[in-house]
Every structure is written in C-alpha cells, then in structure tokens.
C-alpha cells in the first residue's frame, strides 16, 4: 500500500505547540541571517587629493553620519592627502584641464598658476563660510565616521602612519574596502 501522505494522526506527529515553537525558532534565525541590524551603511573610496575633490567624500560622509549611517571612507592614492594632517591643510586646486576655469589652459599651465587658483578658491571658501577640510574631518571623526588610510599607498607615497589625523585607521587594504562595500547600502568611488 502506498502512503505518500504522512499519517497525521500518528502518535509521533508533532503537536501544534511544538510546530509553533519550531516556526518561531526558524523565524528568529531567518531574521538573524537577513536582517543583522537595521543600521544603514555607506562606503566611499576617496582617490583624489585636490582641494575640490576632497570635499564631496567628506560632505557626504558627515551628512550620512547625521542620518545615522555607519560610514567607512577608504582613502587611497592622492586621497590619502585628505587624511594627512599637514598636507590636508594645503590641498591644491589645479587650473589645468578644467575648462570651467576662467583662464585658458595655456595660461593655466604657467608656473605659479595653481597657487593663484588655489588662493582664489580658499578665499571663496572663507568668504562663503564653507567648512574647511580640517573641520569636516574633525566633525566626521566626532560623529563616528571611520577613515581608513590604504596601507599600500601609505608606503608608496612614503608617508608615515603618524602623519594622519588621530583616529584614522591604518593597516588596511583593498580586501577591507571590498568587504565594507559588500556590506554597504551605498557605495561610491570619488
């Protein structure tokens, strides 16, 4: 005799209470596996170190922190200069290669022109009460933003781990960044 349907009246069938307990248990492990926690995450890779390109990652990082995001910013290549305590105060703006600049490229390429355009930009930043790079970093660190300095490029650029702002994480590489990106709700390359 074929009995494809299990005999629900058998003595060893689980009781309704046992089934309910089992469902609850499964729901809990499902929530654990999928939900983890509700905290949203953002991962930014910062690769540029010019004055204009230092702002977007810092503004987004501090704003995301204000939204309650857990934020990781991985700084590599010229992006390291943003975290470099001394160099971050002297980031330059290039006048070459930007057609929106008020001077033609041929003039912009003259010696000293980067200094002129940087001074112009710094004056605008001061006049406009725009936060400085240093202010944005300190503010972000206070809000729990994790700034990471790529170890490979620290060595490539001949920087020392002590050159960076207090609170900056060193000794991390691409695998850390990749893991952060995989876990994040928002991933950006700047």
């Amino acid at each position: 005799m074929s009995t494809d349907t299990p005999d629900v009246t058998a003595d060893d069938a689980p009781s309704r209470a046992e089934l309910a307990a089992r469902i609850e248990e499964l729901e809990e492990s499902l929530a654990e596996a999928t939900g983890e926690d509700d905290t949203k995450k953002m991962s930014i890779i910062a690769t540029k170190g010019t004055l204009d390109m230092a702002y977007p990652p810092l503004i987004l990082a501090s704003t995301a922190a204000a939204f309650g995001y857990e934020v990781n910013v991985f700084h590599t290549f010229w992006g390291l200069d943003i975290l470099h305590e001394e160099r971050s105060k002297n980031l330059k703006l290039s006048s070459v290669g930007n057609p929106n600049m008020p001077v033609p490229n041929a003039v912009a390429a003259l010696p000293g022109m980067d200094r002129v355009t940087t001074k112009m930009m710094e004056k605008k930043i001061a006049d406009n009460d725009t936060a400085t790079i240093e202010e944005l970093i300190e503010m972000s660190l206070d809000m729990g933003v994790e700034f990471q300095a790529c170890q490979m490029t620290i060595e490539l650029m001949d920087y020392d781990e002590n050159d960076f702002y207090d609170g900056v994480t060193t000794g991390v590489g691409a695998a850390t960044a990749l893991q952060d990106m995989a876990d994040a709700d928002i991933q950006l390359l700047v």
């Binding site: 501090s62 704003t63 922190a65 204000a66 009460d129 936060a131 206070d142 809000m143």
Partner: peptide
Amino acid sequence: KGASCPMPVVKTKN
C-alpha cells in the same frame, strides 16, 4: 547662521 552645507544638518543632528 553663516554656515553652509553640510554644517546646518550635521550640527542639527548633534
């Protein structure tokens, strides 16, 4: 007053 993006939001949060 005077501060610009992102400071109004960030300081409001804090």
